[in-house]
Design a protein around this nucleic acid. Structure first.
Lengths: 342, 342
DNA sequence: TTGTAGGCGTTATCAT
DNA sequence: ATGATAACGCCTACAA
């Protein structure tokens, strides 16, 4: 194993010079820098991560805590995770994958041992038991999701309330009067996942302002549960002409069922989905949808932790940020003016 | 920050005793162990990861390289990633998440810097450029997937050839004679992802033995591409009564399209999917499927790296293992005897 | 069963 | 602009 001292000897300088040449924390003459760089490639030097962490008091690792609930949409989650690792690399950081089965203790562990310099929490619940740990130990952190009390924390999430409102507005603008909202399974609402409730509240408020009549129905997302949900909706409100769907798994079955029941989308029935654009594009007809912002939540979260890590290192009080990113409505082929009442 | 020496002082022993008490590498009297444990909880001691890595020459971290291709089924991938982190924790290891955008260099980096003690590669291609790096630097590794030349490497994967054969057998047993195989998009086959070809070969061989007539058609998986694929199949081979689907995204559309075309599953047409059980259960009718083994690939891969890490530490030559895990056929509601020819 | 002491490879503080 | 050198916190022969 080739170490810093080897490089120094080979380049005819002291090890501190090599160290500074690498960190750039003090000026080095072009000539010696060149010699050092040559020595490094000649010898194939790679700085030892453990030693660097020990001496520098920074592991250059952040931990990412991912959820295990089967309810979350896995591809979306993974997309965020990937964005996090890519963004982290740009800061010279690597990402440690943490699951929730260690509970809040996992977060404490990686922070207390110095394994990670900061933490990103995904799938934050309103009353999340990992948050007290964060507060108690002043761990640099960023939350993807919105807790009950975000005071002093850095959070980023979709603006789900606006997403709900956009749906209500779009259907109201098209003249629909009876709307059904097909949501996640009831478990999601009971878990206080926040985003589900926020969407619903945003939708409800706007729907009331626009004098819409509406129904909210949780749905498991399997074909059969969707069939049951749809049947009950049409039984309760036969005049329903508009559907808002916030449940990725239910979209395919819903379209299939509407088709089977002889209802044409969008002529008879309009469907608007709250889902990623790629998913909206995959269905037929391509779905009018409300989806997340261009800039990835993961990137933002990384920027937030990095800021907090830097602040903590500088002894400053990190500033709290709360960023709700506005969704976009994209009109595609699944919504149209409400049919005339027969 | 409370360190080992603090614990030692508090417990009235030397620091080495504390160290050994924690690692269990030498016997400690019950009495002193108790005093040490008390001191640890009293002071809230957490061993420093960097120092441990430096002195112990082990980071207790393994790197997991995840694919970025949009073609892979993300939930399945995530399931493996979670299984890996959980299994790793049981060995006292944490998991570093690496994406492929650093290329093979990422693997070299984490190994050379000592950031990771070992590596798990997902989505291994037949001719994978990360493998030379593994070989050149003797990095303890496990591959999920099967490369061209697995000599000297530890690999684990599904036995896709058998999966294909099971499909052919099942349909042949039911009296079907004309079969269509709906696969992944042609990109997957071009990338030499291996699993797609292996499935197809297994299916083809058995199909020929059983005197089946069959068609293989790649498919993008969107509703529209599936519609096109199905239309072409039925145009080319109107007598097709059995479908094998190895493309998670195409399953929903296919069922929907068959229904729309007036074909009833399973009375008119049998469908068998190569997909996880949970997915097979979600459709209607519930799908006869061929799916992976009970024991998770992730767990096996972790066991394999751990074995290699241990061997390397002991100076032994790690032994290569190649494990192809047998799939299971579960008969559900989507397959039935072939209809009589009209 | 326990203690002593040297070393792991970098960083950063003094000097020069 | 560069050097020497003392930490950083833990591990592990070697002793006792």
């Amino acid at each position: 194993m080739v170490k810093l001292a080897d490089v120094a000897r080979h380049a005819g300088v002291s090890s501190s010079t090599v160290s500074y040449a690498l960190s750039g924390k003090r000026p080095i003459s072009d000539e010696t820098r060149l010699r050092i760089e040559r020595a490094i490639t000649d010898l194939g030097y790679h700085p030892n991560a453990g030693a660097r962490a020990l001496a520098g008091k920074r592991s250059h690792i952040i931990a990412l805590v991912v959820p295990l609930h089967p309810e979350v949409h896995v591809p979306t989650m993974m997309e965020i995770a990937i964005a996090v690792t890519v963004a982290a690399r740009e800061h010279g950081y690597d990402v440690l994958l943490l699951t929730n089965d260690e509970g809040p203790e996992g977060v404490r562990r990686v922070a207390a041992t110095g394994l990670a310099d900061g933490v990103i929490l995904m799938d934050v619940r309103l009353d999340d038991d990992r948050i007290p740990v964060l507060r108690a130990q002043d761990i640099p952190a960023a939350l993807i999701g919105l807790p009950d009390d975000p005071a002093g924390l850095s959070c980023v999430d979709h603006d789900f309330a606006t997403a709900g409102a956009l749906c209500a507005d779009h259907l109201a603008d098209l003249g629909h009067r009876d709307i059904a909202f097909i949501g996640y399974s009831s478990g999601v609402y009971q878990r206080h996942a926040g985003y589900a409730e926020r969407t619903l509240n945003g939708f409800r408020t706007r729907a009331e302002q626009r004098a819409l009549r509406f129904l909210h129905r949780p749905c498991e997302g399997t074909y059969e549960s969707t069939a049951g949900t749809l049947a009950r909706i049409l039984a309760d409100r036969p005049d329903t002409t508009g559907f808002v769907v916030q449940n990725e798994a239910a979209i395919g079955p819903l379209l299939s069922l509407l088709r089977a029941s002889g209802r044409t989308v969008p002529e008879d029935t309009s469907v608007i989905a709250i889902c990623p654009d790629t998913m909206a594009e995959q269905h037929s007809p391509r779905l009018t949808s409300v989806s997340g912002p261009r800039k990835d939540l993961g990137q933002v979260a990384v920027d937030q932790v990095m800021a907090r890590i830097a602040a903590t290192a500088a002894g400053d009080e990190p500033e709290a940020r709360l960023l709700l990113m506005p969704p976009e409505l994209v009109v595609r082929e699944s919504t149209a003016p409400a049919p005339h009442r027969s």
